[in-house]
Design a protein around this nucleic acid. Sequence first.
DNA 1: CGCCCAAATGTTAACGTTGCCATTGTGCAA
DNA 2: TTGCACAATGGCAACGTTAACATTTGGGCG
Lengths: 334, 334
Amino acid sequence: MAAVKKSVSVKDVARLAGVSEQTVSRTVHDSPSVRPETKERVRAAMRELGYRPNFAGRSLRRGKFKTVGVAMFNITGTGNLDRMEGFAAAADKHGYAITLTKVDGHPYTLESASSRMSALPVDGMVVIMNRMPADFGTFEPLPGMQTVLVTMLEHPLCSTVDNDQFDCSRQVVEYLLERGHKTVHFISCPERSLSGMRREEGWRETLRAHGIEPPRLIRGDWTAQSGYAAGQALADDPTCTAIYASNDAMAYGCIRGLESRGKRVPEDVSVVGVDDSLGDIVPDRRLTTVRFDNKRVGMWAVDKIAGAEGVAPGVEHMLFPGVLVEGDTVRDVR
Amino acid sequence: MAAVKKSVSVKDVARLAGVSEQTVSRTVHDSPSVRPETKERVRAAMRELGYRPNFAGRSLRRGKFKTVGVAMFNITGTGNLDRMEGFAAAADKHGYAITLTKVDGHPYTLESASSRMSALPVDGMVVIMNRMPADFGTFEPLPGMQTVLVTMLEHPLCSTVDNDQFDCSRQVVEYLLERGHKTVHFISCPERSLSGMRREEGWRETLRAHGIEPPRLIRGDWTAQSGYAAGQALADDPTCTAIYASNDAMAYGCIRGLESRGKRVPEDVSVVGVDDSLGDIVPDRRLTTVRFDNKRVGMWAVDKIAGAEGVAPGVEHMLFPGVLVEGDTVRDVR
DNA sequence: CGCCCAAATGTTAACGTTGCCATTGTGCAA
DNA sequence: TTGCACAATGGCAACGTTAACATTTGGGCG
């Protein structure tokens, strides 16, 4: 067998097919100005040599990479898989690819994500924010590199997109109030979580908008354990007929905590979570929760970059509302 | 403000710094044969112009991309997030990037994953297999593109890596037998799952190796619901003191199913799962399960490609054993 | 029969980077 | 003074692709 040639280029194909390199290129792009017979001859040559277009040559020529970079501070996070699904789906749609980068969070800045990306073959970038980067206010995206942030916050220079956490809480609280509950207790989350804090605001402000002074919240840490403790604590509170937990794990923990104190769900206390992450885990009970469409968030981010072929940047801010999914854990007390 | 220049190249930097393009290049690579003063002058020019090396030009010249492609048939799968974490970590270590691609599974072949990748700027590729591709036996990786498959199967031309599912079952079964159980019942999974079937084999063969004829298994579908049904069915079987479920959701469902029939876990029946996916979800009980290190699997795959700088391919097959994590759901009946 | 148009194909140059070799300058030993 | 080694820098070409322009060919029409 002959030694493996470094790589097959248009030149090789052209020689074998007896045409010019340009004709090969035109054939690759299926230009109508190449005779069908010629095209077929070129295609045969490509097959024989195993030609595949070289990405580097192509993007050097075009000045474009058809690739969107995704920077994550930590990859293992709720919803990241669905977001990724969205990135990939949207990229596919536009003929783009996704380049993934983990950014070491020291320091936790947009600048470090940006400079990490700058050496990679990408036309634009998406940054998934979990916490508040130190330079959020002052950050400027690299020139020519459209940057989309996945966050609920607005930014003067970058488009942003996320789930609407405030509205999520509004939906839950109003859902419970409409069913006759006099107030809604809240199991919160660590204070550094942006989305968690926004949920907390939504809970508080919606109650106030209905003329109800929010009861004291219980701060959890996202784990079922903390929800369990909260459930036990609230079991003795006679005013507590409805509990809203900032995620499903805490909601489920809370249910078990209530039950451990002899309270029944939903007969005595109604419980609602957020995330729809329990899915297939709990067999005999469907938690009432809020489902977010993270895939859609991911698609929007990539669409914004890949769809904007030559279009002016245009900073936009987009929040997608979640959908309240009714389960078996809320009782109508009217 | 001046119009935005397309992009800043070495040429621009060279002109501003009053040196040749080559000297700029040497400065970028911190070559020792450039005088410190000159270097500083060049660096200043780079800063002033906002120069960043162009990936396309560079890889065209080098013939390398320093990027590993990852092809997934479906992104939302158990352990994918951890694998991704591993890909990213290993890539980072070698100065590589990760390019992610979703492959539409029609047809579900390695060939389609491979051709999808061939037009992207990658030096090698990883394919995450969930099911059996139609062309597994006949597939040949693209010349020059090292291909690693994430699967438990061996392949003549591609390195493969995965968790050791057979050993996982061996560990679970022996763990239960050592604690005095006379046999182990098994809740299985859909037959198209490669890893699930391998777990089934492990369960069956380990029992036989201990001279025990495996009882009839119950086929589940990965959901807690199916585990619940299985638990109810097994609750009436007096020979059943130990149940091994092919994932945690079914194991948990099974526990609830047993409890709904008045059986207590672990007092009456011991239950073990696989995945360690319940984690923070269930507050008042720690399921005995097997934890896999998917991050490590991901790292191995990328190491194999990125670490093999110029080294001969060398097909290898690697299985990482899981770790049995003791919880509260197994009782010693000796 | 000559002219012109359109279709089909070819030629050239440029995208940004860097390996190779050539050139210049400097200091030191013969 | 000459020769030589070595340090610092420059010039050139090539990587693979394709846009823009140039050329050839065939055919229709006056």
